[in-house]
Amino acid sequence: MSLQIWIDGLFAGSVFAIIALSMTIVYQPTRIMNFAQGEGFILGAALGYQMVGVWKWPLIQSLAVLIIAAALMGFIMERMVMLPVQLSGSKFAWIIATLAAAMIFQSAFNIKYVNVTFSYFDIIEKDISIFGAKLSIQKLLVILMMIAVFIINDQFLKRTLWGRSIRAIAHNPDTSTILGIPTKPVIKLAFITGTVVIALVGFLATPVIIVAPAAGLFFTIQGFTAAIIGGVGSPKGAVVGGLMIGILDSVVRSWLGGTWGLFSTFFVLAIILILKPNGFFGKRVEGR
């Protein structure tokens, strides 16, 4: 099997890992799996297409606008999800709230981009060669971003008081409040950070993978699958799960053909859920 397949798998895996990490960032203080998260990926792809592809804006300017737009989307998403959750008090409100948010954003993208798939030239058009296999700088950037997001998130949670507070909020928001932790602003910040992270990977990865405006839920499901395999809520799990399904998909595709890629992902998911119901690094989550 050629090295190229593994490199392509590593790239795809990094994309899924970053999506899973961004979902983990939202999950950490809220215990909510945000099914609208993938729409942030589409935002990154759409703005990349618009700004870099159509308007030919310089990279720095495009990135700055993207980050602001993604932060705004995160802010709106927090209200769309948390307001119904806080008002309803139902244990399942988050499911319908996050799905509704996903549908609303998806419709917006569909209205704006009829019959468009987002693709544009590589921002940095250069390849490097590793033992005869090609790795474009564009793909390398995504892989490096995955490593950076993982390390920053992991260290932040473990080593800083704010990070420990986020873990505390997840466990008990009321007790966190009486210790003086601003739970609601922290949750807002988690949605904003998560959306910025996923929009950035959408922006970076789209020139390589070509994205449709309605594909948000697909990316959500990939990230969700990665998170479940690795263990929901664990940054390490998000990375391991993401890389696993990316590499598996790439290897199976080249071996058995395209349609088998997705099948193998979910087959492995099923096996892992039977053998390790909480994923590789997950903890049993007590019912709340």
């Binding site: 507070s165 873990r167 505390a168 466990h171 008990n172 009321d174 007790t175 210790l179």
Partner: peptide, 27 residues
């Protein structure tokens, strides 16, 4: 300061981390 009903310590945090969370307003 409020010691809630049923203690509500954070079980996955260490003892010291629990105490440090108490200093949040004086961080």
């Amino acid at each position: 300061g409020h010691v809630p009903e049923g203690r509500q310590i954070f079980p996955d945090h260490t003892v010291e981390e629990n105490l440090q969370l108490g200093t949040f307003v004086r961080r």
